[in-house]
Design a protein around this nucleic acid. Structure first.
Lengths: 205, 205, 205, 205
DNA sequence: CATGAATGAGGGTTCATTCAT
DNA sequence: AATGAATGAACCCTCATTCAT
């Protein structure tokens, strides 16, 4: 199940609405914004097409809303993982671990946020910038807590690099089999990027 | 005497074809694959819609072709910049400089390759994977020439990180004004990622 | 309470579907398959173009379906008329009468089956062969019941000859005024073709 | 070679024009009027598309012209065969023989006249009526020379019946192998239709 | 609330036809 | 005469959206 009911939707307690949002994540992730049709979503959710327009004003609004929700969920998950640790180096490790786990377990989320409708929905651009900003800021805080320099740039590279690595992991035959190696590499490279220590790492593939 | 394709005719033909491809890059970059219509392209190019189908079999084929061409062009540009140098550290600097320059000068290219129609065109997925692989391999070679370890992972992070940094640069008000700072940071962080030296860098923003 | 397809709704739906099919028969009969547009059909039926695609998958499928339905209907009508009689000679007379009546009363049917889209729709060729075969077999049975020889060939000539005569009848100013003469001639000539008796017939035109 | 240059075209002595008309017969016969494109014709003829419009005003005119030419050719062939004989019964046999031979040897002609664009080209309807009229008149004359009654109706049935039988012959695997049986049957049935004698015929299939 | 029949703007594509060379 | 690049009307079909039930 891809979609996690956040605070916002949990209050609605609406099964149909939830079903449609869950279906939407899958469908959008799989086909991209334009190729996914409203009919795809309602079929997947098992409701009638009219029902869609009772709960959502239109396709685009749903998508943007979904993007926000999913971004929120991802940020919460990462932030929580980071906050569980106090040592910056361990914070990175924990965050990386959380990100990769999520990606492997719920690839739709990553697909939606990184590939899905970017560049396809004009009103999404701003949201996308905001999302990236949040990711970057989170990593920047950790890096600077370590005493690393170039916080902003390092964080940008970290954020983009993580995405690329995760996407490469997901492109493999058995992502879960290579998850640990990826996590280790991501962690090690993060420490290097911070620039505060020399790190030795396990063998490469 | 029969019709003879004179020099002038051929040039005009090539010109029209080129105009349509340039128009297509812009339109696709701006709206994404699905939202861009063939009519948009021909309007931008100043030709009739029938002309499009005289030169290209269909929209998707053009897009894939454009993607390949653009990817080839980017790779050539980068590879050339890298090859101009012999010292690995300088190779990175040169490649980074070339990438950023291209991005600032021709943002459509970056937009097309990184955002455009990814996830929207099924037949593009394979091409996209190939393109990323080429980018990653290029950086990996440089990194390993420096004696860096974790070549594959480092290269992935470099590739993804570079994209993120370039995208962030393009998102700013005056990309060209911040290009140099970004180039410096990208270079410095690359060296760190390679893991062979400690690098000091200029102040951050 | 959910939407319930009431009797009224269903009837309206059927009505619309029927209206479109009737419109289609007319339009196809009048213009032929290719020249007839889906817009022609929906205009004639008084519905929107989207409605067409709600009821039928596409133009070709509808046409083939229409052809089959019409062929079935014609065969049933003829067969029924034939079966009402026991004497072979009277069976022919009855069948001929039914065919001509149908042609005069509903010329679109004949037009669709004999002229409409033959040679225009590849997937129709097989259906056409089947239809001709059914017609031929029906007449052959009757002829052989009379003791006529050359059943297959006689039946072919009968089938083709009937069509030509009906088409010639329809091409006249007032088909209904000449229907009886045509019916008589068709019947008389059929008996001759069967080769079992000498027949005297009414005066010719 | 399907197209025979009649008096009209022979005077032109124009190779390109002839090539296009020959190509047109084939293409129209194969695909039907609408599905056949002007490009198909010029490709088959090995000329450029502009050349088409130098020789013919438009597609429809060519088709109508082609229909007339082909009808003329068929009528000439049949009439000639009929005229070679003096005895009416032998005239029929000769005409039938000629028709079947032509159909087997040059099926495109039959296809064009009987199936091709009938019902698809409005301006063809009149031509088609004229053609049928000529066929019918020819057979009627023969029948009445034999002393047969119902000349008009018999001739209609003969004309339509012949077409059906020829079409059925062409639909078989090896038309030429069954040509003789068909010819015999057509001849025998014609005599019966004329109503002047009792005819015995060879075994049926 | 829920339904699904109905709508029609708009997209990709074809193809008869024109005209400068 | 001959060419083929260029045109654009028109076709088939999709799909977001509405609304009576």
């Amino acid at each position: 199940m891809a979609y996690r009911s956040s605070e916002k939707t949990r209050q609605k307690k609406d099964a149909k609405r939830t079903a449609m949002m869950q279906a939407a994540v899958q469908v959008f992730a799989e086909k991209g914004y334009h190729a996914a049709t409203v009919r795809d979503v309602v079929n997947q959710a098992g409701v009638a097409i009219g029902t869609f327009y009772f709960y959502f004003p239109d396709k685009e609004t749903l998508f943007v809303y979904l993007y926000e929700e999913t971004a929120d969920f991802l940020m919460q998950t990462l932030q929580q993982a980071v906050n569980q640790q106090t040592d910056p180096a361990q914070q990175i490790a924990s965050g990386v671990q959380a990100y990769v786990s999520l990606a492997v377990y719920e690839p739709s989320i990553v697909q939606l946020l990184l590939v899905g409708g970017v560049g396809a929905v004009p009103s999404l651009n701003e949201k996308r910038v905001q999302f990236r900003e949040r990711v970057i800021k989170m990593w920047r805080r950790v890096i600077e807590d370590m005493g690393g320099d170039m916080g902003r740039f390092s964080a940008e590279m970290l954020a983009g690099g993580f995405d690329e690595m995760v996407l490469n992991l997901l492109a493999r035959r058995n992502p879960d089999m290579h998850a640990n190696a990826t996590i280790d590499a991501m962690t090690a490279l993060s420490l290097r990027l911070a620039g505060t220590q020399q790190v030795a790492v396990a063998a490469d593939t």
